[in-house]
Simulated assay, not measured.
Amino acid sequence: MADARFEDGDEQPLRLRAEAAEDLPVVSALVQDAVFTGADMGFSRKGRRFDILLNRFRWEDRAAATRDNRPFERVRSVLSVMDVVSVASQGVGKDDRDSVLSLLALEFHPGADGTGVLTLVLAGDGALRLTVECVNLTLTDVTRPYRAPSGKAPQHPEG
């Protein structure tokens, strides 16, 4: 059996699950440069679930779009984190529902017995810190891909 390749997913929507810290780098790479607003996220304390509706850049399609000389794409995706005990934020106003936030990475800092803190690192020194009982999240595309409004792939300074 061969490993899956990005090309295998071509036009299929992503539906990924992370159940261990080792799974997070793949999800983190796929949500890098996703944008959302404060109105796009919510925490259900009773349901112990944190959800964000993201406008995700389709990193898995970047090479093919470049090769085929076609527009880069974004897709609306839901990042759902389950078994969340609490949520804290830095640099994100609780009442600011309109500012556009950019997700840079997911980082997990383990605690005792599988617990830990999942940090959603945001551009501009912002962060969302989710205290979790375990790593348990999904990333699900919920729309068809659409042309990236900028027409460009996100760029990051070297170094």
Rank of each mutant, 00 (worst) to 15 (best):
A4S: 14
F6E: 02
E7V: 11
E7L: 10
L14Y: 15
R15G: 13
R15D: 00
A20D: 12
V26E: 11
D33I: 07
D40E: 05
M41W: 14
S44M: 06
R45D: 10
R49V: 15
D51T: 10
D51G: 03
L54R: 08
N55Q: 13
N55P: 02
R56S: 03
R58M: 13
W59M: 10
D61R: 15
R62T: 10
A64T: 07
T66C: 06
N69I: 09
R70K: 12
R70G: 00
E73Q: 14
V75L: 04
R76Y: 04
V78H: 02
V81N: 04
V81F: 03
V81E: 03
V81W: 02
V81L: 01
M82Q: 15
Q90S: 14
Q90A: 09
Q90D: 12
V92P: 09
G93R: 06
G93D: 07
K94Y: 00
R97H: 11
R97M: 14
S99R: 13
V100F: 01
V100H: 04
V100M: 11
S102I: 03
L104Q: 01
L104V: 03
A105D: 12
A105T: 06
L106K: 01
L106P: 00
L106Q: 01
P110C: 13
A112F: 14
A112Q: 09
D113I: 02
G114A: 10
L120K: 00
V121L: 06
D125C: 03
D125G: 05
L128K: 07
V132F: 11
V135I: 13
T138R: 14
L139C: 06
L139F: 08
T140Q: 09
T140E: 13
V142F: 02
R144P: 00
R144E: 09
P145A: 02
P149L: 13
S150D: 13
A153K: 02
A153E: 10
P157C: 04
